[in-house]
Measured scan of single mutants.
Amino acid sequence: AELMTLTIVKGAQGFGFTIADSPTGQRVKQILDIQGCPGLCEGDLIVEINQQNVQNLSHTEVVDILKDCPIGSETSLIIHRG
């Protein structure tokens, strides 16, 4: 298992991935745009978004944080894999 830092840019259609609740937090459910989120894999656990720890937040709260990220700006994700 490892922590990885990824930088992704939000496009007009969003980030290009969906998230779902899991017992340990929000996991990447589906990658819709592989080019839009390079390095991200289905099943990755989202630990931080732009230096904000999201592991204890609800699904709705994490979705809102992602929605609030401006289109075209870089967003830093720390994910836990494995």
Rank of each mutant, 00 (worst) to 15 (best):
L77T: 05
L32A: 03
G16A: 04
C37Q: 06
K29E: 15
M4K: 12
L66V: 03
V54Q: 00
G39K: 03
T18W: 08
G16P: 12
V47Y: 02
E61C: 10
I49W: 02
Q55T: 12
Q30V: 06
F17P: 00
F15V: 12
M4H: 11
C41D: 14
T18Y: 10
P38D: 05
V28G: 01
V9P: 05
D33I: 02
P38S: 09
G36V: 12
C41G: 10
G43L: 12
I31Q: 07
L57P: 01
N56A: 08
I65D: 01
G16D: 15
N56H: 15
G43N: 01
A20R: 04
V62P: 01
K10C: 03
D33Y: 14
P38N: 01
G36H: 05
P23H: 02
N53C: 13
A20Q: 15
I78C: 05
E74D: 15
V9A: 07
S76M: 12
C37W: 02
S22L: 09
G36C: 10
D44E: 00
D33N: 10
K10A: 06
T75R: 06
N50Q: 04
T5C: 05
P70Q: 07
I71W: 04
L57V: 11
D21N: 06
G82E: 15
E2L: 05
T5Q: 07
R27A: 10
P38T: 10
V54T: 10
K10F: 01
R27D: 01
Q35H: 15
G72A: 12
G72I: 15
H80T: 14
G72D: 15
G36K: 05
S58F: 02
C69T: 15
E61Y: 01
I49A: 04
Q26R: 10
A20V: 06
E61K: 05
N50E: 13
V9N: 03
L6Q: 07
L57C: 10
I8Y: 12
Q26N: 05
T7V: 05
K29W: 12
E61V: 05
Q26K: 14
G14F: 03
N56K: 10
L32K: 02
I46G: 01
T24V: 08
A20D: 15
V47S: 07
H59N: 12
G25P: 01
I79H: 01
D64S: 13
D44C: 00
G36S: 04
K67Q: 04
F15R: 02
E2S: 09
V28Q: 00
T18R: 11
A1F: 01
I79S: 02
L6H: 13
H80L: 05
G43V: 00
G43I: 01
G82F: 02
L57N: 15
I65A: 10
A12I: 05
E2R: 07
Q51K: 11
S73M: 12
H80M: 03
I19S: 01
I49L: 13
R81A: 07
I78F: 10
C41T: 14
K67W: 03
K67P: 00
D44W: 00
T24K: 13
F17A: 00
G14Q: 09
G14A: 04
I71D: 06
K67F: 09
C37E: 13
I46V: 08
A1C: 12
S22G: 14
R81M: 01
T7K: 12
I19Y: 04
F17N: 00
N50R: 08
S76I: 05
A12Q: 10
T60P: 03
I71V: 13
G16M: 12
V28E: 00
R27I: 14
Q35S: 12
L6F: 13
H59I: 05
T24G: 14
K67D: 15
Q26E: 13
H59K: 05
N50G: 09
L77K: 00
G25L: 01
D21E: 11
C69A: 11
D64Y: 15
E61P: 00
D33P: 04
T60V: 13
V63F: 01
K10N: 06
I78W: 05
L32M: 14
D68M: 14
G11K: 07
K10M: 06
H80S: 13
G11S: 11
I19G: 00
L32S: 14
I49C: 07
V54G: 01
C69S: 15
V62Q: 02
Q13K: 09
T18G: 08
L66W: 01
K10D: 00
F17Q: 00
Q26P: 14
C69R: 08
N53I: 08
N56D: 11
S22Q: 13
N53V: 08
H59V: 08
L6E: 03
G39N: 10
H80P: 01
H80D: 14
D68P: 03
I34P: 08
I8L: 14
G72H: 02
V9W: 08
V47E: 13
V47F: 15
M4F: 14
I65K: 08
V54E: 00
E74C: 02
A12W: 09
M4R: 04
G43M: 02
I31K: 15
Q30R: 06
D44L: 00
T24M: 10
L57D: 06
L6W: 04
R27M: 08
L77A: 05
D21G: 07
T18C: 10
S76Q: 12
R27L: 12
A20W: 07
Q52W: 07
K67T: 15
L40G: 00
I79K: 01
G11I: 06
Q26L: 11
F17C: 02
G82C: 06
T24N: 12
A1W: 01
I71M: 12
C41V: 14
F15G: 03
I49P: 00
K29L: 03
M4V: 10
G14L: 06
S22A: 15
E74Q: 08
T5I: 04
C37F: 15
D64F: 06
Q30G: 07
P23W: 11
I79Y: 06
V47I: 04
T7R: 09
E74R: 13
C69H: 02
G36E: 14
I71K: 06
E42F: 05
Q51F: 08
I46T: 01
D44G: 00
M4Y: 11
I78D: 05
S76V: 10
G72K: 05
I49K: 00
F17E: 00
P23F: 06
G43A: 07
G14C: 06
G11N: 13
N56P: 15
Q52I: 14
G36W: 15
L77P: 00
L32P: 05
I71Y: 15
V54W: 00
K29C: 07
P38A: 07
I71E: 10
T7E: 05
S58L: 11
C69N: 03
